[in-house]
């Protein structure tokens, strides 16, 4: 029971820190890295502690923590270069 409310407190602190970072004048690359790291930490804590994923067998853990993020990343990485290229073409046409 203590684990759940400790997780809750950490999630809230992380949310407040993210809001603070949003208001602070942090360079964009550092800001993006920090936000993605905080997001991954929060997601991992919810999955591990609230959903009890850390207590499951390797088959379920691997399907979730490898399968889902890998496919999600691929979805973005495979289309992102196209978006960047079209953005450049549009910028050139506007000049």
């Amino acid at each position: 029971m203590k684990t759940y409310w400790t997780t809750w407190a950490i999630l809230l602190v992380l949310t407040v820190v993210m809001l603070w970072a949003d208001a602070a004048a942090i360079p964009r690359p550092a800001f993006v890295v920090f936000m993605l790291a905080a997001m991954a930490t929060k997601a991992s804590m919810i999955a591990a502690n609230f959903m009890h994923l850390r207590l499951e067998r390797a088959g379920i853990i691997l399907t979730v923590i490898v399968g889902l993020p890998v496919v999600a990343t691929l979805l973005y990485v495979l289309i992102a270069p196209d978006a960047a290229r079209i953005h450049q073409m549009m910028a050139a046409a506007l000049r």
Partner: peptide
């Protein structure tokens, strides 16, 4: 993930 990837695409564009 598909929705968020397409959102990322729109942000890049």
């Amino acid at each position: 993930a598909g929705f968020l990837a397409s959102y990322g695409y729109a942000r890049l564009l």
